[in-house]
Amino acid sequence: MKGLFAGLAKFVVAPAAVITLLIVWLRPAPGQETVPFEEVEPGVHDFDFPAIWEFSFGDSEFFHLTINKPMVQLIVAAVAILVFFIIASKKLRVVPKKWQFGLEYAYDFIRSGVARDILGHGYEKHVPFLVGIFFLVLVNNWFGEFFLLMFPTWSTIGFTMGLVAVVFFYYVAAGVSEHGLKYFAVQVVPSGVPLWLYPLIIPLEILSSFVTRPLTLTIRLFGNMFAGHLAVLVFVVGGGWLITESSSWLYNYAGFGAFALGLLVIAIELFLGFMQAYLFTMLTTTYIAGAVSHGH
């Protein structure tokens, strides 16, 4: 019994007291004006950022160059990755120092773990593209959990489209450089399928190779990052609003629970950000492998 009381005191009463003290400090004072939830409500508008600098090309908003936070993030990520890798790769030694093990592990994770395993012979020439794309996706995903930025760049679909456009160009170009213009025939005419099925299969293959693949790459990366960021916003902003703006004690405590869950969601998002970067790179590699293979 004594142990039970001690356990309760340690794991229930003390945290509850601390939380209660925090709530008392953070909750609105009686009679204080509170912000209505509609004003902070997380939503699609959280993915629109004001322009830091803008330039108009004609009337249409669609051609309006708007430099905002996600765009700066994307460029900063690319520059940071390149500067880091260029400096680090110049210091590579045959016998690695301690820091080099980590770098080599990261590089080899894609070089051997993805490129060599999927592409096999002749994988070396695709390694630079795959490693670069992996780290570009990864760093921008993790910007969603990086405390200074807290926004995953790929949840802005325009950037994801640009990225996938490059990936699409890359695997088509890889196929063309492997097979010549015959690549398009190789890609869409399956082998080992009876001739009478061709009218059915070829349109499907065209759709799959040149429409669905880039589309799913875009939607998967964008959707995961968008939804993940929205989930974090719901728990963190909603929880925060319940603590600081609601006059109901029940809501205050619920807000605390939601906020704690928000931190958990952020941890999951870290993992998902890695997962999506890995998946994106792996699918890209698979598409390249399909484009350069001879036995489609």
Binding site: D48, F63, H64, T66, P70, I75, I157, F159, G162, A165
Partner: peptide
């Protein structure tokens, strides 16, 4: 829907 075409262009340039 992309906010503007520049997002795609910048995405392509960066990648």
């Amino acid at each position: 829907m992309p906010h503007n075409v520049w997002e795609i262009i910048i995405g392509v340039i960066v990648a």
